[in-house]
Each structure stands twice: as structure tokens, then as C-alpha cells.
């Protein structure tokens, strides 16, 4: 027993290593959070489970590549690119919502699932046609290319930006939802969209706006992850699975749930990689299974009647 703990958890006494694993876990959590919170937001308002959300993330990465090329070395191009890539994905999401999703809000959820799944297949082929099947490299901004020392161990400076950006976006979303009129409308729509419509709010327009915001978050995550992983086919499928794990644990529709569950899943993976390398990927699914058994509506979700 003692030996088991020594082999699997002995490393926890190494402070610099623990910090490093925690830091890289938190950095991955930020991508998960941006994607999962958009997914959760869209579901909370429109009750659409958007399978194509991972595709938006992938398009964010590809748009990042395209915009960097188009901007071609203008000062601050990286930051401009982040904004333009998010806006491009928001636009893509908006078009899909207005043309297709809007028509099936009242249909059986299974049709909505099928439609968004069709988007996944279509968008993955469109991406291959537009950008080819090989990975597209997005350079890191010069100033963020190196590394900083965390307790004597080098840590990529870019990851610090990711963590900071994740916190800032989280904070901004909170302000929007709890301190603005628009945020109040969104929360009201989550509660009862029919009542909101009866009170004179243009509900379809609100849905489109929410869908575009959710898409923009996925696009931002994709644009920020591109310099780390290169934009490549298949990134849509891998993120959407993790994002669903996050929203199931955190509770579909819950903003706080998405944030905490992202941290939980990513940190668990980072620590599990050291302690139990052979099964590190399974840990998050185990947590999800336990949550599904004891709290099917998620840790922070609302129980559906």
C-alpha cells in the first residue's frame, strides 16, 4: 500500500513539478472552458445541443491561419487576428443559425441533433477543401515565443497568456450576463422564452445573438490553440467529446459549472498523466459516469422537471 502511494503519488512532494503540472492543466482548462461555456450558453437559451461546436473551434484555428497570412506582419497582428478569427466564426455561426437552426427550434430534439451532426460532417469537408488536409501552422507572437521560469522550471510564456485570457473572458462574460440588460434578457430566455416573447422582446434575434456569441467563444479558443497544436482536421472531434464531458459534469446550461468542470477535467488529466499514465484519459470519464449516476443534471445544473 505504502509502496503504491510512493510510486504513484511520490512526485507530489516535488513542488516545482506539481506547479508545472497544475499550470499546464489550468492552461488546457481555458480552451475547454471557452468551448464548453459557448456550448452550454447555446443550450441554456435555445435548448439546442450543438454538435458542430467543435467544428466552430476548428474553424477558429483555420481562420487564425488565414488572417495571419492576410495581415502579413502588421504590428499587433496576433491580437487583431484573435478578434477577426472570433468574428469570422461568429458570422459563420450566425449564418447557420438564421438559415437552418431557426427553422427547427420547435422540432423534436432528435432532428436538431441530426442537423448539427450534419454540420459537423459538412464543415469538416469544407475545411479540407478550403485549407487542405495537412496541418496549418500559426506562429506564436514573437513576444510570447519564449518561456518563463516557474520555480526553476521553464514554462511557455504563451501558456500564461492563455490562462490570463481565459480569466478575462470569463470575467467579461459574467459582467455581460449579470450586469447588462442584454444579459438579463438572455437569462430570462433561459427561464421562459415564451413569456419573454409575450413581453415584446424579439426572441429569434436574441437566439441568433446568443448563438453568435457562443460561436465566437469557440472561435476564440480555436484561434488561441492554433499556435500550440497547428490547425488540422480532426481537432473538431477531439474537443467536442471533452467539451461534452465538461458540460455533463458541470451541468448543461450552467456557466459556473462549465468553468469549474473544465478545471476539474483538465487538471485531473494533467496530474493523472504523471500518476497513472496508462489510464490518465479514463479519469475524466469516470468522474462523468459518477456524476451521471448521482446527479444526472450535473454538479451545477438545474434539475429538469
Amino acid at each position: 500500500m505504502l509502496e503504491f502511494f510512493a510510486t504513484h503519488f511520490g512526485w507530489l512532494t516535488d513542488v516545482s513539478l506539481v506547479t508545472l503540472q497544475l499550470a499546464s492543466g489550468i492552461a488546457s482548462a481555458m480552451f475547454l472552458f471557452l468551448v464548453a461555456s459557448g456550448l452550454s450558453l447555446i443550450f441554456g437559451v435555445s435548448r439546442i445541443i450543438n454538435f458542430a461546436h467543435g467544428s466552430f473551434y476548428m474553424f477558429g484555428a483555420y481562420f487564425a491561419h488565414t488572417w495571419v497570412q492576410l495581415l502579413g506582419g502588421t504590428p499587433g497582428e496576433f491580437w487583431v487576428m484573435l478578434i477577426l478569427a472570433s468574428l469570422s466564426v461568429a458570422l459563420l455561426g450566425g449564418v447557420l443559425e438564421v438559415l437552418f437552426l431557426r427553422r427547427i427550434y420547435h422540432a423534436d430534439p432528435i432532428f436538431q441533433l441530426l442537423l448539427t451532426f450534419a454540420f459537423v460532417l459538412l464543415l469538416s469537408d469544407v475545411a479540407k477543401i478550403l485549407w487542405g488536409a495537412e496541418g496549418k501552422v500559426v506562429p506564436r507572437p514573437e513576444a510570447l515565443a519564449g518561456s518563463v521560469s516557474i520555480l526553476g522550471t521553464p514554462f511557455p510564456r504563451y501558456m500564461l497568456l492563455v490562462v490570463a485570457a481565459g480569466f478575462l473572458v470569463g470575467l467579461a462574460l459574467w459582467v455581460v450576463f449579470y450586469r447588462t440588460r442584454w444579459g438579463r434578457l438572455v437569462r430570462a430566455a433561459r427561464h421562459s422564452r415564451d413569456m419573454l416573447g409575450a413581453l415584446g422582446t424579439n426572441v429569434p434575434r436574441l437566439f441568433t445573438q446568443v448563438f453568435m456569441l457562443g460561436s465566437a467563444l469557440a472561435g476564440l479558443a480555436g484561434a488561441m490553440v492554433a499556435p500550440i497544436v497547428t490547425a488540422a482536421p480532426g481537432m473538431d472531434a477531439s474537443i467536442i467529446i471533452d467539451a461534452f464531458v465538461v458540460v455533463v459534469i458541470g451541468g448543461l446550461g450552467s456557466f459556473l459549472g462549465a468553468a469549474l468542470a473544465s478545471l476539474l477535467v483538465a487538471v485531473l488529466k494533467a496530474l493523472g498523466t504523471v500518476s497513472f499514465p496508462a489510464i490518465s484519459m479514463v479519469l475524466a470519464y469516470v468522474v462523468m459516469a459518477v456524476v451521471l449516476i448521482f446527479r444526472p443534471w450535473g454538479l451545477f445544473g438545474r434539475r429538469e422537471e
Partner: peptide, 22 residues
């Protein structure tokens, strides 16, 4: 001292890199 086998198609190797260095 370490064996890391991420799934085929994994694109983010960060946790495996840090765990290996560890």
C-alpha cells in the same frame, strides 16, 4: 522512468511532455 502513450491523433502533448520531464 516514464512511459506516455497519448491516443493516435492527439494534438496537445503538453501534459505528456511535462510529465515525462518530471
Amino acid at each position: 522512468v516514464g512511459q506516455q502513450f497519448p491516443k493516435l491523433g492527439e494534438t496537445d502533448f503538453t501534459p505528456y511532455i511535462t510529465a515525462t520531464l518530471a
